[in-house]
Simulated assay, not measured.
Amino acid sequence: MKLGLIGCGKMGRALLEGALKNGIVKAKDVYVSSRTEETRAALAKELGVNAVASNTDLANKADVVYICTKPNITPIVLIELAESPECLDGTLLISAVAGMALVQIEQALPGSARVVRCMPNTPALIGKGAAAYTTGSNACSADAETTCKLLGSVGSVVEVPESLMDAVTGVSGSGPAYVYTFIEAMADGGVLKGLPRPQALELATQTVLGAASMVAETGLHPAILRDMVTSPGGTTIAAIKALEDNGFRSATIAAVEASTEKSKELGRK
């Protein structure tokens, strides 16, 4: 496989490094482009990939192209590709552009363009990401398999209808920020009760990591795992009551809802 990357920011780099580390693609078969020569040259030097000045040249060389540009830059990239439609012959485009629907991408490109839309998240930077994807009107089952292989190199991946991609943004796209806030709040609670900040933060971080791993590895519903550590009249049920009294569950649901609606709003612009 020959892989292209348009947009060399943190997410694009994470997706690229995952593919390299897992042997899905070799550095000599990777082409990267960015608005600035300095950015693409630095990435090429560090990872041993090929820096390309033209997006159309990159698409001509690659079998699969990640588009990881900012939403305000993406239309310019699509126009550039559409002006040289031959560069898209046999090329799969995987868009990780936030809020940009498949129809917006497909309408900007030649009618036969094969497009997949995906939503990864920032833990992909350490190979622990969660991503979802949806296929365009011209994409085939082989394109879905390729997408799964690439996204799976940086974490877990699921396929969803495009109508649910905004909800994916609300749950996993923005979700790491909710968890970071929760870890910080847990550590603050520990500090309030006398724990030194470093120890409080370490305990809170490992607790969240361990609890998430329990859900992932046991396959049990979170409520079952919660009940396993909730003794009658004990400390945990007192804490859970405090969470419920202060709107923890409803606030979390509201956060997912707010992120989802904002994603829909961005897609309408």
Rank of each mutant, 00 (worst) to 15 (best):
K26W: 02
K26T: 11
A27Y: 12
K28M: 02
K28N: 02
D29R: 01
D29S: 07
Y31T: 00
S34R: 03
R35Y: 00
E38R: 07
E38P: 01
E38Y: 04
T39Y: 03
R40I: 05
A41N: 14
A42R: 13
K45H: 08
E46L: 06
G48P: 06
A53K: 15
S54H: 08
N55I: 11
N55A: 09
T56H: 01
T56D: 07
D57M: 09
L58E: 06
N60L: 14
N60Y: 14
D63P: 09
D63H: 12
D63N: 15
V64P: 06
I67V: 09
I67W: 01
C68G: 11
T69D: 06
T69E: 10
P71M: 08
P75R: 04
E80Q: 13
A82Y: 01
A82E: 13
S84A: 15
P85W: 07
E86T: 11
L88W: 06
G90M: 10
T91P: 02
L93H: 12
I94V: 13
A101P: 13
V103N: 14
I105E: 10
E106T: 08
E106S: 08
A108L: 07
L109I: 05
P110T: 07
G111Y: 10
S112A: 14
S112I: 11
A113S: 15
R114W: 14
V115E: 13
P120T: 05
P120N: 10
L125D: 00
K128P: 03
G129R: 01
G129A: 02
A130M: 15
A132R: 00
A132N: 02
T134D: 08
T134L: 14
G136A: 09
S141D: 15
S141N: 05
D143F: 12
E145W: 01
T146K: 11
L150T: 01
L151D: 03
G152F: 01
G152T: 00
G152E: 01
G152Y: 03
S153Q: 04
V154Y: 04
V154P: 09
S156P: 00
S156F: 00
S156E: 05
S156H: 00
S156G: 04
